[in-house]
Design a protein around this nucleic acid. Structure first.
Length: 385
RNA sequence: GCGGAAUUGGUGAAGUGGUUAACACGCCGGAUUGUGGCUCCGGUAUGCAUGGGUUCGAUCCCCAUAUUUCGCC
């Protein structure tokens, strides 16, 4: 079956929504943070650990799995769930972000995008049809349309033609889509221009996707710009379908965008930060490598319910592991960071349920930024109206 | 005991008779957003073994001392 989004409650004072999504591999509540497992693994975590941090769904990457080990191997294994032994929901990204991060403008054409396989130098062409075909074989629960993710800033003219292309690519992908057990999302592009975001959203809605996501964010723009881009899309999206904001995972961005009507987020940050020795807490982001942690035998965050903190692994020990390049360090911090972000969405759900999201947001900012205050000018108007 | 060579920051080391002593590692900070997994960006010797001397000026030249190291007896 396709996924089913059930809207349970709309927060009274903001655009936030409480809901749940039913899939073939279980139901999860939204808003939800989705850890990234590019190579069919959330880096350093076992599936038991993923369950333990209460991940409702994870993301895997079409581009990477296409190159290695190849979608046919995964299909032969019985699909991605069976291959990686994860029995929860999976969303596959289409490769659209690699258009932004790996391909050069000259490699992008109407047909698709040329890539160079870094493993053996092969020239590869990824097209909307190919991306969908791969995702159909991977058998994830949610497939993403192949879009053109552009950087920021981008001119109106470039965004406009890019939106048109993304819409044509969305249509081409939808036409060849062939997997009853899988759902397909459209991706809203349009840069920072409201009329383009609106147009793109409305055209995608006409095509009737199973859910919608917002792309082209966290590509270098400032926060207020990102929040506007989000609002330009959520304004025109149907209430009965799920909204997924791609690539966003700074804690404040999760809070702000939940307020603007987003249901799902994904981001590499908790695992990448972990590998580089950073950890998140209610009171901000910290660097475990700082010399002051050398003999600090307290845990990362005494209020945290993650395995790392409950077990009582100390800052001094984790600092040592990170400095020594031991993978357990990255793993303990990844568990902590992912749990932090998922717990953040749990708290947001609770606040939505109680219609107290604005107060929660206020307190979050106070705790996380302290005396420094918000690093940007807030616009409450956007959240409320 | 005799003779040679060496001595530059936490480490390995470049280097020059004349403003800021290269580079690398480490260390100390910071960055990281639909992940091309050890990446990127900063900072980090007021001093070149010690004491004398030559010189307008010495880390660089000379002498002595110390230490290390090699060879010979």
């Amino acid at each position: 079956m396709k996924i089913k989004y059930i809207l349970e409650h709309e927060e009274k004072n903001t655009k936030a929504r409480l809901g749940k999504i039913e899939t073939n591999y279980g139901t999860f509540e939204t808003p939800m943070f989705m850890p990234v497992g590019t190579e069919a693994t959330v880096k350093t975590l076992s599936v038991e650990e993923l369950k333990d941090v209460k991940a409702g769904i994870i993301l895997a990457n079409t581009y990477h799995l296409w190159l290695r080990p190849g979608e046919d191997i995964i299909a032969k294994a019985g699909g991605l769930h069976e291959f990686m032994k994860w029995d929860g929901p999976i969303l596959t990204d289409s490769g659209g972000f690699q258009v932004f991060s790996l391909a050069k403008p000259k490699d992008i054409s109407e047909e698709g995008v040329k890539f160079k396989n870094h493993l053996n130098g092969d020239n590869l062409l990824l097209t909307p049809e190919k991306s969908i075909e791969i995702q159909n074989k991977l058998d994830s629960d949610i497939a993403m349309s192949f879009d053109e993710c552009i950087g920021w800033p981008a001119s109106y003219e470039y965004c406009k033609q890019s939106v048109e292309r993304t819409l044509r690519w969305a249509k081409r992908g939808k036409d060849v889509f062939n997997n009853d057990r899988q759902s397909l999302f459209g991706i809203v592009q349009g840069g920072e221009y409201e009329d383009l975001r609106k147009y793109c959203t409305e055209e995608l809605v006409k095509m009737d996707f199973d859910g919608y996501s917002i792309g082209g964010t966290s590509v270098g723009e400032d926060k207020p710009t990102m929040y506007k881009m989000v609002r330009y899309a959520t304004k025109y999206l149907p209430q009965g379908k799920v909204r997924y904001l791609m690539g966003v995972g700074d804690p404040i961005d999760i809070v702000e965008n939940v307020c603007r009507g987003i249901d799902i987020f994904d981001c590499v940050s908790p695992t990448r930060l972990a590998r580089h020795g950073h950890y998140l807490t209610k009171f901000g982001k910290y660097n475990i490598k700082n010399a002051k942690n050398k003999d600090d035998f307290s845990c990362l965050d005494s209020n945290c319910d993650c395995y790392t903190c409950k077990k009582g692994y100390s800052k001094a020990y984790i600092r040592h592991l990170i400095n020594a390049g031991e993978t357990l360090g990255a793993r303990l911090l990844s568990i902590h960071n992912i749990r932090y972000l998922i717990r953040l969405t749990e708290e947001l759900r609770e606040a939505i349920k109680n219609d107290s999201l604005l107060a929660y947001r206020e307190q979050f900012i106070k705790d996380y930024y302290g005396d420094k205050g918000l690093p940007y000018k807030q616009n409450l108007d956007e959240i409320i109206n």
